[in-house]
Structure formats: structure tokens, C-alpha cells
Design a protein around this nucleic acid. Structure first.
Length: 254
DNA sequence: ACCATTAAAACAGTTACCTCA
DNA sequence: AATGAGGTAACTGTTTTAATG
């Protein structure tokens, strides 16, 4: 099964949109390129101290941004400078800078998500060129596109895992049922063999089984698997001799 | 060819924030 | 208004992969 065919419930209705991205998306160039801050110096803090707006698109990618819809209903449009920190920059669209250290969260617009989905359907990884092109088209930082694809792959994998898990569960149920049926069948065969009527028609045992530990001799019938001690999921090693005997015997009388 | 080193990409796991009931 | 759950953008640390000497 193709991982892309999972039917992730995402609407893909795609209408090439005027990108309503705001000029508020500033991202630190170095950070977007994959460089990492140390654990002791969160990038947002470093960037803030450097006066860099992490949510702003790169200079070259921001032409034509003035036509924002300006509606607060489209969170994406009013994204605020990331420096400003914790409040939903996206939804509130004010340029205030409440610079505490919290990272900010951009909500992608439906159009952006749709385009990303379309792209993901074509190829679930991006080469640098594709990433840059997509970022430019969406007026996002390449890093954002990269992160989106990472998260999207993770969601796909999770979904696939759930599907696989469900499949295995059903498989397990089927096997359990089959095992139960075989146990029952075995019990019936034993009963058949041990019934006095049938016993007379059977050839006497030609071999005896010696228990290696207690060194007692057992007849094959007694040595057969103790069904009561067998867990329901345990495979049953059927004895061919038992089956042959049952098969050779006349049908049970009602 | 084989190995060590390095950088980039991808991944896994987590955090922080947003939305909604 | 407060709150908890769920979704997801963004982050960190680790592993994999490819290029280079």
C-alpha cells in the first residue's frame, strides 16, 4: 500500500490563491538554512537579540505582499513579527513586540496548506530547488517548508502505523479463532479415538513413548498434548497418527 | 578499493501555541 | 471565563547518507 494513499483527511481543494502572506514573516536566514542553535541558546532568543524577525520572509521573496486581506479571520494574514513573541501573532496581526522568549506559531492558510499537500502528493521529500521554489511561491521561509514536509512525513508514517496495527489486530483475531477451532477439532478427534466403539476398530499402538525425565511409559494417546494446559494462542502440533486413525475410522454414530 | 571525516538531510521525540468544544 | 483535548508549527538531538580526502 502506498503511503500516500492513506486518505489523510485533508481537503485538497486547491485554488491558486493570491498569497495573503504578510510581511510579518521574518525568519533568521542562518537558522532557516538548517543551522542550529545550541540547547543553551534557543534560536528565538538569539535571533531576537540580533534583531531578526524570524517570521519575515526573505527580502527577495516579499514583493507584492501589500495586498493582504487584513481580516483577522484568516489568521495567516495577520501574522505578526515573530520577535514579538507569545501572543498569536498570526491572529492578532499587531506589530507589537512583547519580546519574551516564547516561540511563535504561524498558522498556514488553507491555500498554503493545499499547495503543500499537492506538492507532497507528488514527492514527499524536496530537493533544495523545489524547497526554495515552493517557499517563494508560498511566501514562506524554506525552513518552514522543510519543517512542514518533515511533519507531514511524520503524520503519514503515524497514519500508516495505525493502519498496520489495525491490520495486525485483525490478523491476530483471525488466527486466534482458527486456533480455537483447531483445538475444538482436536478434542473431537480425541473423543472419537477414545470411544470404545471406535477403539475396537483401531490397530494397537505399535510404539510406546518414554518420558525422558520420569522414565514412565506412556501410550501415544496419553502422550498427546494436554489441551487444558495449552494457551489458546499456542500452535497445536497435530500428530499425524491421530489424524490417520480418525480418518481411517468409520464415521461416528449419532 | 577501503577507511575516516564531515556536512547535509531525514527522522524521532518533544515543546509551545492555537483552536474548539 | 476557564479549561482540557487535539492538532500542528517549530524545535532539539540522533541517525543516515553522500561527498571528499
Amino acid at each position: 500500500m502506498a503511503k500516500e494513499d492513506l486518505g489523510l483527511s485533508l481537503s485538497l481543494t486547491f485554488s491558486p490563491p493570491p498569497m495573503p502572506q504578510s510581511h510579518h514573516h521574518h525568519w533568521a536566514h542562518a537558522f532557516a538554512a538548517g543551522s542550529r542553535a545550541t540547547s543553551h541558546s534557543p534560536p528565538s532568543l538569539l535571533l531576537r537579540s540580533a534583531g531578526i524577525d524570524v517570521n519575515r520572509a526573505p527580502e527577495g521573496e516579499r514583493e507584492g505582499e501589500s495586498e493582504e486581506e487584513g481580516g483577522a479571520s484568516s489568521p495567516n494574514n495577520s501574522t505578526v513579527s515573530s520577535i514579538s513573541g507569545k501572543r498569536d501573532l498570526v491572529a492578532h496581526g499587531s506589530d507589537e513586540e512583547d519580546g519574551d522568549g516564547s516561540r511563535k506559531k504561524l498558522r498556514l492558510s488553507k491555500d498554503q496548506s493545499a499547495i503543500l499537500e499537492e506538492s507532497f502528493k507528488e514527492h514527499n521529500t524536496l530537493n533544495p530547488k523545489q524547497k526554495a521554489a515552493l517557499a517563494k511561491q508560498l511566501k514562506l521561509r524554506p525552513r518552514q517548508v522543510e519543517v512542514w514536509f518533515q511533519n507531514r512525513r511524520a503524520r503519514t508514517k503515524l497514519k500508516q502505523t495505525e493502519v498496520d496495527c489495525e491490520l495486525l489486530k485483525r490478523c491476530c483475531e483471525t488466527l486466534t479463532e482458527e486456533n480455537r477451532r483447531l483445538h475444538k477439532e482436536l478434542a473431537e478427534l480425541r473423543a472419537l479415538k477414545l470411544s470404545p466403539h471406535l477403539y475396537m476398530h483401531m490397530a494397537p499402538p505399535t510404539t510406546l513413548t518414554m518420558c525422558p525425565s520420569c522414565e514412565r511409559v506412556q501410550s501415544p494417546a496419553v502422550a498427546a498434548i494436554p489441551a487444558s494446559n495449552t494457551p489458546p494462542w499456542a500452535p497445536i502440533p497435530l500428530r499425524p497418527s491421530l489424524l490417520h486413525a480418525a480418518a481411517a475410522a468409520p464415521p461416528p454414530m449419532s
